[in-house]
Design a protein around this nucleic acid. Structure first.
Lengths: 213, 213
DNA sequence: TAGATTGTTAATCGATTAACAATC
DNA sequence: TAGATTGTTAATCGATTAACAATC
């Protein structure tokens, strides 16, 4: 059954799940006990029908006439998203961006724990930032395997991203979040989410250029 | 006619345009003179049909039997995206992330120029990073108007994002790229692109959790 | 019970893909 | 000319929205 349930969901649904989860966390902090799909829709900006539809991909979480119990739905989403456990994260590249990520407090709360960092600047190797040790880039495979890294975050300069992705493929890491622009298609079996500054800015440029219409 | 042409394009097309543009730039550097939709499809990973379809929203840029002239298509995309000119960018928040953005060399090349930065840490105000002056947060409206800022980049800690978006609405800035998680819906007329670390990581978590299926 | 709201099916809308006549 | 490849229309696929019976 499980394999059936999770088969084909709309691509954007995963992003909406994160938004629902975050919103429910906020509601719980505010001691809200229950919420209807309509009320939730007012907060997140999607339609109530879409929210209900989205949830049906995973089960039934509400009560007709009553709405959803905030903490029940939250806990279910937590499990669906897969953050009812912690994931081990390796940070590759300890420049400004890398250090911004290391010092980002939201990580632990969200069940992603940076366990090691890599750089090939000799001045950085062996140092600790926020208690995370920086290793030499050539020890990537060794350390990643030893520490059981699930996810790699790429914060390296433009140009070297593709090379590192290839090296990562060899370590068994199956999920990567890259802040470095990549030009090659990701290797088979590796999921790569790209945060792409140019693409985001160019989206804004397009919007501004075609505003009058 | 223009107003007709740009009316309703698929949401994801804008992102693909950026990918085409970047790829064509690379091809031009490599002295490739012309390329077919099929060859391009092999590089970017979308289908040839989609590439041709995407381009028809904006005009006819190829020659049947011949393909596309790399530099002609590139120049057209440049204008379509709106980067045949420069946009003035204000950086809000000069922490690690802010400084990573300031030192990112890709900016100028891509026609986005950081013209000013804001922070409310007294130690930072008045300083210059990469020749960009940091102003006090309360002078945001004044400076942004004076400098003709088009786009604001939000690199502030979690929690303050919503407040600053509201302030920005008053300055006339219509496009924002936010690295800070926002919970409120953006004000009318303001386009906000969010780079959301939690959402990206949770997407990976979902993928890893449902791998076997 | 009456009112509210879910879960789900059917209808609509939008985006992608296939196919091919036009044309270099 | 023959072969290649575009631009575009029609067919398909997928995602969203509307509607409503079921149910609390």
């Amino acid at each position: 059954m499980k394999s059936d349930v999770f088969k084909k969901i709309p691509k954007m649904l995963i992003y909406r799940l994160s938004v629902y989860y975050r919103t429910l966390n906020k509601l719980e902090e505010a001691k809200t006990k229950s919420i209807s799909s309509y009320e939730l829709s007012q907060i997140v900006g999607f339609t109530a029908a879409q929210i209900r539809k989205d949830l049906t991909y995973f089960g039934q979480f509400g009560r007709p006439g009553k709405g959803y119990d905030v903490s029940v739905l939250r806990d279910n989403l937590k499990e669906i998203i897969g953050i009812n456990k912690s994931w081990n994260v390796a940070l590759i590249g300890v420049g400004f961006l890398g250090r911004a990520l290391i010092s980002y407090k939201g990580f632990r709360k969200q069940h992603f724990v940076i366990v090691c960092a890599f750089d090939n600047d000799p001045k950085k190797i062996g140092q600790r930032y926020n208690d995370i040790e920086v290793f030499s880039q050539d020890r990537m495979e060794e350390i990643i395997k030893k520490m059981g890294v699930d996810i790699a975050i790429l914060a390296v300069p433009e140009g070297v991203g593709d090379t590192i992705i290839k090296e990562l493929a060899g370590t068994g890491v199956k999920a990567v979040l890259s802040f470095s622009p990549l030009t090659l298609l990701p290797p088979e079996g590796m999921k790569v989410n790209q945060v792409d500054l140019s693409v985001e800015l160019e989206g804004l440029s397009y919007y501004l250029s075609h505003l009058e219409e």
